[in-house]
Nucleic acid binder design. Structure first.
Lengths: 126, 126
DNA sequence: AAATTGTTCTATAAATTATATAACAATTTA
DNA sequence: TAAATTGTTATATAATTTATAGAACAATTT
């Protein structure tokens, strides 16, 4: 899987990595059960520090997206049912974005169209 | 308009304020043309620093949501057409969230339902 | 005329982000 | 079995971000 880190971005490196791994799974480049590279090798490949990758992995674990097996490695979780806390977190994250879209002049249909086209994008290769 | 700042949140205060103002406009509590409180009085009301409110206002201005009239005050913008850069910014912000929803086990219909219910929420009072 | 406005500047402190190095025990590989 | 690799933990440093504070300015508003 190809990861592109932009050191100049105002988005923290570990967040960029977290997001691109999530998008890689959503796109079907990574599947449940797949192992992720070791924090050391991944860091070396990306040209970033080991702890930055580690932080990303633990963020992914907290979100329930990967499982870290101590002294072994990280594996993409097999999708369980959505927990209520995960759903609440998603709502809290979606809300300001949807509000912004509305305030900038989009109507409901346009927002749904935007979301639908992104959804379509992810299901392209599966 | 009621603003609730959580000093313990890991979301910066100026971001919390920015989001709540955006949501206030989306909800219809604030209308295009309405003036916002002065940075000093707002800061005093919220119990935060003047510069924190100022940072939020400038973030809102950058997003095209308010207009700051120098030496006068801040006013909610009259919604123009969505610029392509604003749309691209929205896409970039929506993408990781939608990916996360998919990875956590939601299907397309459930994502759209989630978005629709939030949209419904905002149009409740108008 | 006085008060209020956004703006700008300097300053400080705490938290966050990113890197670096080292060491540990457990697992995996050769 | 020995060697290499694994995630983990700890300490350390530096730059950036976040938040506050106070002061001063010119322009607007009262």
């Amino acid at each position: 899987m190809i990861i592109q880190i932009d050191a100049e971005s105002d988005i923290p490196i570990y967040t960029q990595l977290t997001n691109q791994i999530i998008e890689g799974i959503a796109r079907g480049d990574l599947h449940p059960g797949d192992s992720l590279p070791s924090v050391r090798s991944f860091a070396s490949d990306l040209g970033v520090n080991m702890h930055t990758v580690n932080k990303s992995y633990h963020e992914l674990e907290k979100k329930g997206i990967i499982e870290i097996i101590p002294k072994s490695g990280a594996v993409v979780s097999t999708a369980n049912e959505l927990t209520s806390s995960s759903k609440q977190r998603l709502i809290n994250d979606f809300r300001p974005l949807i509000a912004e879209a509305l305030v900038l002049g989009m109507n409901k249909e346009q927002v749904i169209k935007l979301v639908t086209s992104i959804l379509q994008d992810f299901s392209q290769n599966q």
